[in-house]
């Protein structure tokens, strides 16, 4: 379910690219330092987006530097990080932990279990610092598992569940901006959930797995999905526009107005090639 909130890199200026990459590398470095080398595996673009968004809103003092890391030992690259990077790293680990517990419960994925054991101790620590967010993650993922098992939930109910989770993560602290931030997170979380369900539909159709969009299945499936997704992301973008964000606003808009569609555009392209193949077979 993670990794959909990315930038459209064709449209990024070199400066924007450097800021984005710098946030990503800063988060990766922070994850490694706070939670051990292996936690870096769980790094997501969604949390990178959160780092840029909240940093741009609150503008805390940042540390800038360049470093070589184990994955790119030859080329040193710039990074930046601040207290929000630390927050995002903690949330990233928490999400990875509950996600891996889920994997273990669902399909007894051994990788998941190993991950969960590694991350468990970290999560207990994070719970002390961010009880509101951690409760939201626990509650939402448990509720999602329940809904998926019951197989009766419609798209609104299931999406709202993941929306609640993202909404709480977007609120770093309760202040003047928590309302637009929470609403933005909720809408973006719903968008991510529906996008993920779109992506999973062919497989769920085949295996009989639960999918909240199953009732919409048909020739115009992707058109209907696009309509729903646009409504949801428009809500997130409208909340974003209410925030006093100046620095990195162009980078964030690139993600919200274009980059988030990367996966969906790929799905549409895939369907196009498939339907072309079908016509050829008929001929």
């Amino acid at each position: 379910m993670f990794g959909y909130v990315v930038a459209n890199h064709d449209d990024l200026t070199p400066q924007q690219m450097e800021r984005y990459r710098g946030a990503y590398c800063g988060l990766c470095k922070t994850l490694g330092q706070r939670h051990g080398f292996f936690s870096r595996m769980s790094l997501t673009y969604d949390m990178t987006f959160l780092v840029v968004l909240l940093s741009s809103l609150y503008e805390p003092p940042a540390e800038q530097g360049t470093e070589r890391c184990a994955l790119h030992p030859a080329k040193p690259h710039p990074y930046w990080r601040n207290e929000i990077t630390e927050y995002a790293a903690d949330m990233n680990v928490a999400l990875a932990y509950y996600n891996s517990v889920d994997d273990w419960r669902d399909d007894h994925n051994l990788g998941g279990l190993a991950q969960a054991k590694l991350l468990k101790a970290k999560c207990d620590e994070i719970l002390q610092h961010y009880p509101r967010q951690m409760r939201a993650i626990q509650y939402s993922l448990k509720e999602l598992a329940r809904l998926e098992k019951a197989r009766t939930a419609g798209p609104d109910e299931a999406a709202a569940c993941f929306g609640t989770l993202m909404g709480e993560l977007f609120v770093l602290k309760e202040d003047h901006w928590s309302t637009p931030l929470r609403r933005m997170g909720i809408a973006l979380g719903k968008f991510i959930y529906i996008l993920d369900a779109c992506d999973d539909l062919p497989e769920d159709r085949r295996t009989g797995g639960y999918n909240p969009l199953l009732s919409m299945d048909g020739d115009d499936f992707l058109t209907r999905c696009r309509e729903i997704l646009t409504m949801l992301i428009a809500e997130a973008a409208a909340e974003f526009e209410k925030l006093p964000i100046v620095e990195d606003a162009a980078l964030l808009r690139n993600i919200l107005y274009s980059g988030v569609w990367s996966k969906f555009t790929a799905l549409e392209a895939k369907q196009k090639t498939r339907s072309k193949g079908d016509t050829k077979q008929h001929e």
Binding site: G3, C25, M41, N99, G112, G259, S262, A266
Partner: peptide, 26 residues
């Protein structure tokens, strides 16, 4: 904006290669 491509990938593909990462499914 132009039509978004496959997005960009700074490191996670490398991670997958190295560690068979169970998380970065996308």
């Amino acid at each position: 904006y132009s039509a978004p491509g496959r997005g960009l990938d700074f490191c996670s593909q490398l991670f997958c290669l190295f560690f068979c990462c169970p998380f970065c499914r996308p």
